[in-house]
Simulated scan of single mutants.
Amino acid sequence: MKTQWSTSAYAVDDRAEAIRQTIRDRVVPVHIALPERPEDVYCEVSITGVGRVQLSTVRANPATVERSLRLAAADWEPCLFLSLQRAGTSGVVQDGRAATIRPGTLGCYDTRRPYTLLFDGGVDTHFLRIPVAELGLPDAVLGDVTARVLGGDGASVAALGASCLSRLAAVPDLHTGPAAEHLARATLELVRAVIADACDLEVAARVAREESLGPRILEYLRRHLTDRDLTPGAVAKAHHISLRHLYAVLAREGVSPGEWIRRQRLEGARRELAGPGARRDTVAAVAHRWGFTDASSFGRSFKDAYGVTPRDYRDRPHG
């Protein structure tokens, strides 16, 4: 649904509140500081959607827009905004950084944290709103590009993005019809490319390492499962992280390391005890091979897990 809106449709004294309500209800809940004199308040807004991407164009008098900590913490779909300056300049402040956005460049901010937008010379800007979930990018990558100038170099990916987004905003007929869904997907891919190109490579590498840390630790545990000195502390040391970090990483994988090691060792011992050559070794020898130092505790754990002693399990027929 497209919205074409102007303060000219409202009585002078109602315009400020009409602006605030339209932006709050259709774009994002924010506080907007406007000129004190009602006759100085004006605004024109065009809002449309391309799939899950919302595109709005705003022309208005000087204003300051603030998303407070309270609003950022409210139950509202997390979104990333890209602002494309049409004329003049604007400022964006977030995450302890500030950037001045000029025509042809992009600014970026995240609704999950407080931010301030400064339009001291008036508003003449396109705004692209994208749900964070649609981007599928790590928070650390998104956080690296907030309140930074994206573009300004004619050869950069961000410059290409600014040009394409400007064209998208200028041609409303592109937003509907059979090609709109494909255009929405292409727009998301373009925004991902802009962010990836602007993201600090060290940050991106760190994010990639952190995201792969859980699977890498689990693979390490599998390879060293029969080591009797395999403990959470030893695993943390092998990966150059703290024990606390180890537990946090594996919690994201739904794993408690001590319990996971014990369960996997029991399963390995159970498979060996069911094998054709199991009778050639004692139960204690099998337990020892799978990292258990105490045959008695192994026997108790095995029975708790499988309802039968290791010896009885070994001696029963296994088809």
Score class of each variant (00 low, 15 high):
residue 78 P to A: 00
residue 157 V to R: 11
residue 110 D to S: 03
residue 186 A to E: 06
residue 29 P to K: 08
residue 4 Q to K: 08
residue 31 H to I: 04
residue 72 A to W: 01
residue 113 R to G: 04
residue 126 H to N: 15
residue 315 D to N: 13
residue 70 R to Y: 04
residue 287 A to H: 03
residue 6 S to D: 14
residue 126 H to Q: 15
residue 55 L to H: 00
residue 290 W to H: 15
residue 148 R to G: 05
residue 32 I to P: 03
residue 6 S to F: 13
residue 235 V to G: 00
residue 206 R to H: 12
residue 219 E to D: 08
residue 255 V to M: 09
residue 188 L to I: 12
residue 263 R to S: 13
residue 91 G to T: 03
residue 153 D to C: 09
residue 264 Q to W: 15
residue 114 P to Y: 03
residue 165 L to R: 07
residue 30 V to W: 02
residue 207 V to H: 04
residue 80 L to Y: 01
residue 186 A to Q: 09
residue 67 R to D: 12
residue 155 A to V: 04
residue 161 G to A: 12
residue 186 A to L: 05
residue 111 T to R: 11
residue 35 P to L: 08
residue 174 L to T: 09
residue 246 L to M: 05
residue 160 L to C: 10
residue 165 L to E: 03
residue 25 D to Y: 05
residue 210 E to M: 15
residue 274 A to S: 02
residue 94 Q to Y: 00
residue 26 R to L: 13
residue 81 F to E: 12
residue 115 Y to V: 08
residue 248 A to K: 07
residue 33 A to V: 14
residue 240 H to L: 09
residue 290 W to S: 02
residue 66 E to K: 05
residue 67 R to V: 10
residue 109 Y to P: 01
residue 46 S to C: 14
residue 228 R to H: 01
residue 72 A to L: 11
residue 1 M to Y: 12
residue 268 G to L: 10
residue 276 P to F: 08
residue 167 R to A: 12
residue 123 V to A: 06
residue 127 F to I: 06
residue 98 A to H: 04
residue 188 L to E: 08
residue 82 L to D: 01
residue 194 V to P: 06
residue 34 L to M: 06
residue 176 T to N: 08
residue 207 V to F: 05
residue 171 V to N: 06
residue 301 S to P: 02
residue 194 V to Q: 02
residue 170 A to G: 11
residue 272 E to M: 07
residue 181 E to K: 09
residue 208 A to H: 10
residue 107 G to F: 00
residue 207 V to M: 06
residue 197 D to F: 10
residue 285 A to Y: 01
residue 70 R to W: 04
